[in-house]
C-alpha cells in the first residue's frame, strides 16, 4: 500500500530524512518511532504530498507522490500533529467542508458525516463551535476528518500528543479499531504506544532508518535466549551468593547465571536459559526446597524502550554532531 524507496529530504543546511526505504502492506498498523527531530513529521509530510522529497520515490496506494499528487492525496487521510480545525466553525459544518474538499457530495456526504461522527464519538458535539472543544474532542474531530472520505491510507502524526491518560487510551482504541479497513502509519515518540497499538515498527533516528520489523520480532531479536530475573533471600542468617549461584547453575537448561545485585540477606540473579526451555518451575522448586524465600520471579524480556535506546544509543555514540534540529517548527 505504501512503498518508500531511498526517500531523502534536505533543508538548507540539514538533511532531515536520509535515504529511507520501507514498505507497508494493506491493513497494517505501523508505528513510526523516533526521538523528537528524527524526521518523522518530514517523512509523513512527504507521503501526504505536503512537500516533495529532495530525492527518492514514494508511492501511496500505487500513486507516486511527486508525479501524481492529486490522485495520491485522494487515497490519504492525514491528521497533522496539530488537528487542522477551523475554530470558528461548528463540528458538523467542518466535517461537511472537509468531505466536499475530498470530493464527496450529496447523499454520500451526509452518510459519511453521520458515519464518522459515530465512529469517532463526536456526535454529541456536532453543533458546538470547535474553538470550545476540549483537546480530546479536537483530536477525535481531527481523526474524523481524516477518515471522512474512507481513504486507503491513514497517516497520523503523534495522534496522542497532549492528551490526558484516559483520552490517550480512548484514542489508541479508536485507532486500533480503524486498522483493517485502513492502512495506518502513526508516528510517536512514546514507546509503549507502539507496543500497544502497532503490528510493525519503523525506528528512525536523525533521519536514518535504524530498524524495521514486527514488534514481536524486534523484541525476540534482542532478547535472544529467554532470561529470567529471580530475587532470592535467606529465611534466616546469611546467604552466600556464590553458593546460590552454583546451585542455580545446576538446574537443567540453565546456560548462564549472573548476580545482578546483592542486598542484605538476599540477591537478584539473572538467569539465561536455552531458547524454548521453560526453567521457571524448576527454579522455583529449587529455591523453595533449599529453604530460601522466593521474592520475585519475572521475565527479563527487553521492553521496546530498551531496544530503542540500544538502537538509537549506538547511533548517537557514533555520531558526534549535535542533535538534529526540530523539523516540526
Amino acid at each position: 500500500m505504501i512503498t518508500v524507496h531511498d526517500l531523502t529530504k534536505k533543508y538548507a543546511r540539514t538533511t532531515a530524512v536520509d535515504h529511507i526505504s520501507f514498505s507497508v502492506s494493506k491493513g497494517q498498523i505501523v508505528g513510526f518511532l523516533g526521538p523528537n527531530g528524527a524526521g518523522k513529521t518530514t517523512t509523513m509530510r512527504m507521503l501526504t504530498c505536503f512537500f516533495p522529497p529532495t530525492a527518492g520515490q514514494a508511492t501511496v496506494a500505487g500513486f507516486d507522490v511527486l508525479t501524481q499528487p492529486l490522485e495520491a492525496r485522494r487515497h490519504i487521510g492525514y491528521l497533522p500533529e496539530m488537528p487542522p480545525l477551523y475554530l470558528e466553525m461548528e463540528t458538523v459544518d467542518y466535517l461537511r467542508f472537509v468531505g466536499r474538499l475530498k470530493g464527496l457530495s450529496g447523499a454520500e456526504l451526509n452518510r459519511r458525516v453521520e458515519f464518522v461522527c459515530e465512529r469517532c464519538a463526536v456526535g454529541d458535539v456536532k453543533t458546538k463551535l470547535m474553538g470550545k472543544l476540549s483537546k480530546g474532542y479536537r483530536q477525535r474531530v481531527g481523526l474524523a476528518q481524516a477518515i471522512i472520505h474512507n481513504p486507503d491510507v491513514l497517516i497520523l502524526d503523534e495522534p496522542t500528543a497532549g492528551l490526558d491518560p484516559r483520552q490517550i487510551i480512548e484514542t489508541r482504541e479508536l485507532i486500533r479499531s480503524l486498522a483493517g479497513e485502513h492502512t495506518i502509519i502513526l508516528s510517536t515518540h512514546i514507546l509503549p504506544e507502539v507496543e500497544q497499538t502497532c503490528e510493525q515498527v519503523i525506528i528512525i533516528n536523525k533521519g536514518k532508518l535504524v530498524a524495521t520489523d514486527s514488534v514481536q520480532n524486534l523484541q525476540a531479536r534482542f532478547r535472544g535466549a529467554e532470561s529470567v530475573l529471580v530475587d532470592i533471600s535467606a529465611r534466616s542468617g546469611e546467604m552466600s551468593a556464590a553458593a546460590v549461584q552454583q546451585r542455580l547453575e545446576q538446574v537443567n537448561g540453565v546456560s548462564r547465571v549472573t548476580c545482578r545485585e546483592r542486598q542484605g540477606h538476599g540477591a537478584v540473579f539473572e538467569i539465561e536459559s536455552d531458547q524454548g526451555r521453560l526453567v521457571r518451575g524448576d527454579l522455583a522448586r529449587l529455591v523453595v526446597e533449599a529453604g530460601w524465600d522466593l521474592n520475585e520471579l519475572r521475565s527479563a524480556a527487553m521492553s521496546l524502550e530498551e531496544i530503542f535506546l540500544q538502537l538509537t544509543g549506538a547511533e548517537s555514540a557514533a555520531a558526534t554532531s549535535s542533535a538534529a534540529p526540530e523539523s516540526n517548527a
Binding site: 505536503f50 487542522p84 480545525l85 475554530l87 474538499l101
Partner: peptide, 14 residues
C-alpha cells in the same frame, strides 16, 4: 498559524 493550511495542501485540490 492554525495549521489548517496542512489540510488544504494535502487535500485533492489544486
Amino acid at each position: 498559524r492554525n495549521g489548517t493550511i496542512e489540510l488544504l495542501t494535502t487535500s485533492p485540490v489544486r
